[in-house]
Amino acid sequence: MSVVVYVESQNGIIKKAGLEVASYGRAIANAIQTNLIAVTFNTDDASVLNTHGVDKVYNIDTEGDIFFNVNRYSVSLAAIIENETANIIVVSATANGRYLGPILAAGIKAAYVSNVVALPSSYDPITVKRSCFTNKAFNECVSNQSRTVISLSSNAFGLKEQTTDAEHAEADYLNSNSTLKVTATDSITDKVTIADADIVVSGGRGLKGPENWHLIEDLASVLGAATACSKPVSDMGWRPHSEHVGQTGKPVATNLYIAIGVSGAIQHLAGISSSKVKVVINNDPEAPFFKAADYGIVGDAFEVVPKLIEKLKAIKQ
């Protein structure tokens, strides 16, 4: 029996979400007194896993296959899971983790539980709390299988350090006969993504037009934050679709979410409500966002935001 975590890395560097699943996996391994095994692909330096409680690391070299290959990753992981007789497998809620999870679960005949927000409340059978109805509710979910793949929501557990002396093991990068081939990626590399960010600054229709987005971008840049927007803003083409957050867009589960000129429609709030602290800046005191926010300023974004940027710049210097 053991716990296996899929630790995602990007350009050879382990992602924060990867360390979070390791931290979560460690807590499970402690609770059921077993080993924590991490599987990562093409990671330059996996030693950071030593500080996040990993007992054994398989760092698989994909031999020049530079893109995420869901089928080959899945079969390679499945072989390790078999060898290590793992019964709990944890993946992150990144785009790749959520893609891999159900395919891996089907491959190893496991139950799959996504959007998990806490440690299991029971290990026999495995019972976990997950969010559903796009964060409008939670459900306690029981696995009926002997194996369970858990996809952990971003920022739900956080990073916990525990020093271990991880053993390094070798495993093959197995083949699959899928016809699916990645030919290229088109990435906005120099920007913090919504999925990775600790802070997200989001703009709504209250900003009046794309020409005013420097307010959002400047505030995001001084905070090291990712930028996001409401659905109409992306529908009108003011911002790319990839920034649309909410029930039908991307979920946001950051430490701090700052909404500027966003009214706070139920579909918007559903997608961002698992963010820890929410701040709203809106000139209408009746805007529904004020009911959902922790902190708020009733005021004109065009006056408040420049002041905020200026003060923050002064602090950060």
Binding site: F68, N96, S178, K181, T183, T185, D186, T189, I194
Partner: peptide
């Protein structure tokens, strides 16, 4: 095309 964190991936399949 698949949307990924921070960009897009271009793929082919039969």
């Amino acid at each position: 095309q698949r949307e990924i964190d921070g960009g897009k991936e271009i793929l082919s399949a039969s």
